[in-house]
């Protein structure tokens, strides 16, 4: 599904290397987790995958189902099935949540040469999916993320993901700032989307989320590289001992 090979990234404005050769291969239907200390390059990886400005890829490649995504505009990557649940979802004053969702769904459909969703059908689907995430009608009407609590923002990200039905979902610290109940809701939302054709890359600090979203593979990222990969037990090791042991071991 997603192949990252030797990805090296620096900041466009500064001479600062952030990713120093990331390798990652995620098969269809798999769930991978990335853990790692603050500043290790996890968010940068997710941004570069989704096409944010300000980063320069100096080496390596990223393909989604064999197609080079680095050459694509962010909206083309989205239409190709890539989705990033932001660590910090952006507030958009003046644009209604519902309007935004429908615009996004239909823009992707159009880009893929599919028919647009009718207003009635859209409404029906949104209501159903919002209900499962405990997002009420009021929240759907409000401007995108404006005045949403941290937890509401994260649930809204999952709603977008559920509506857009991407094949490669990247979740950047979707669990941070969530209480136990909210985290369960989010995890249920994610698990409901798990399927053979859909893969996940879950970036997190904590083992907690991984109790709910069971990963197939866990990677540890440090200083712009994936330094260790393993099974779910690796997350437990981090939980119990922190990163120090692992980092010392690979140094």
């Amino acid at each position: 599904m997603l192949e990252i090979k030797g990805l090296e990234v620096k900041l466009q404005e500064e001479d600062k290397q952030i990713l120093k050769g990331v390798n990652l291969s995620i098969g269809a239907g798999e769930v991978h987790a990335i853990m790692g200390p603050n500043g290790s390059g996890k968010s940068t990886t997710s941004y570069v995958l989704s096409g944010k400005d300000g980063y320069e890829v100096t080496a390596g490649s990223v393909t989604l189902d064999g197609v080079d995504v680095l050459e694509m505009e962010p909206e083309e990557r989205a239409a190709a099935g890539l989705f990033l649940a932001f660590q910090y979802p952006v507030e958009i004053p003046g644009v209604g949540n519902m309007t935004f969702l429908r615009t996004a769904v239909n823009a992707q459909r159009k880009a893929r040469g599919e028919d647009e969703m009718s207003a009635g059908e859209f409404l029906k689907v949104v209501r159903e999916k919002a209900k499962a995430l405990k997002i009420d009608a009021e929240m759907l009407k409000r401007p995108v993320n404006v005045g949403f609590s941290g937890g509401e923002k994260k649930r809204n990200e999952i709603l977008q993901m559920a509506m857009l039905e991407p094949k490669m979902c990247i979740l950047d610290e979707t669990d941070s700032g969530l209480d136990v109940d909210a985290m369960k809701l989010v995890a249920e939302g994610v698990n409901a989307l798990r399927s053979e054709g859909r893969s996940f890359l879950v970036i997190t600090h904590y083992q907690r989320l991984l109790d709910h979203i069971k990963p197939d593979v866990v990677h540890i990222m440090a200083n712009g590289r994936i330094v260790k990969s393993g099974g779910p037990e690796l997350a437990l090791e981090v939980e119990n001992n922190g990163y120090a042991d692992i980092l010392a071991e690979v140094a």
Partner: peptide, 21 residues
Amino acid sequence: FYMQSRGVGRKAATDLLTLAF
């Protein structure tokens, strides 16, 4: 970027933000 990452083209996203303004 947030809007683009959801599949809305740069031009359409700019227009939406302009109308929102």
